[in-house]
Amino acid sequence: MNLTLRVWRQKGPQDKGRMVSYQVTDVSPDMSFLEMLDMLNERLTLEGEEPVAFDHDCREGICGACSMVINGTAHGPQKLTTTCQLHMRTFSDGDTIDIEPWRAKAFPVIKDLVVNRGAFDKIIQAGGFISAPTGSAPEAHSTPVPKADADEAFDAATCIACGACVAACPNGSGMLFTAAKITHLGLLPQGQPERDSRVVNMLAAHDEAGFGGCTNAGECTAVCPKGIPLTTIGRLNRDFIKASGKR
């Protein structure tokens, strides 16, 4: 396959940045999207040009590092798929593909397609934890969890903190990520002691970081590679109303 890429190039946080076109030839349909970029980068390196910087780590859809808006959609056209798991067969020969970084004030661009997602860490530090004595693992049956709750908590826990939800949100809101954590911990017995302070503090950290407010538009869940449902946001809201009533 032969493709035209239009890639966001930005030398550093202060640089203004712009879209730059590249031709890539002989792309195998079996390549992953990142392998296709590796190929471009090898060529750029040989030509003495600066390669395109992008985040990646596991390349198997579990770490959440890869982060690209491909043709206007976070993680590209395939549902429930991270950029690293997207294959070139989803495109056609002759296509033009636009590649941009996550766009959010809370995720400033470091270089090219790499953004700083430290704002998510701030949200986690504010309440995305439980207090438990460390040491040997407790007996599994000492705290029974209803199967339905365990399943729903687990589904929410599959969030890999990639930030696609923020990238896709018309409000630049990080509510789906925050709600996934609230749901994951709030459904389990171990999450109960901090349940009220968690939602209040995590939301404060979310707003503090410069994310926008949620209007339930639903773009987040449509691009989420882990299919975190919009209902988690209802859980967050309900926890917040309860916690506010108690203060």
């Binding site: 043709n71 206007g72 209007t215 773009e219 449509a222």
Partner: peptide, 24 residues
């Protein structure tokens, strides 16, 4: 206003994924 501040640099290419006309 918060939404505007939360995305100071616009996307060059923006697709409507969920595409709810009412929400937009």
């Amino acid at each position: 206003l918060r939404a505007k501040a939360a995305r100071p640099v616009k996307y060059a290419h923006r697709a409507k994924v969920q595409g709810s006309y009412a929400a937009r």
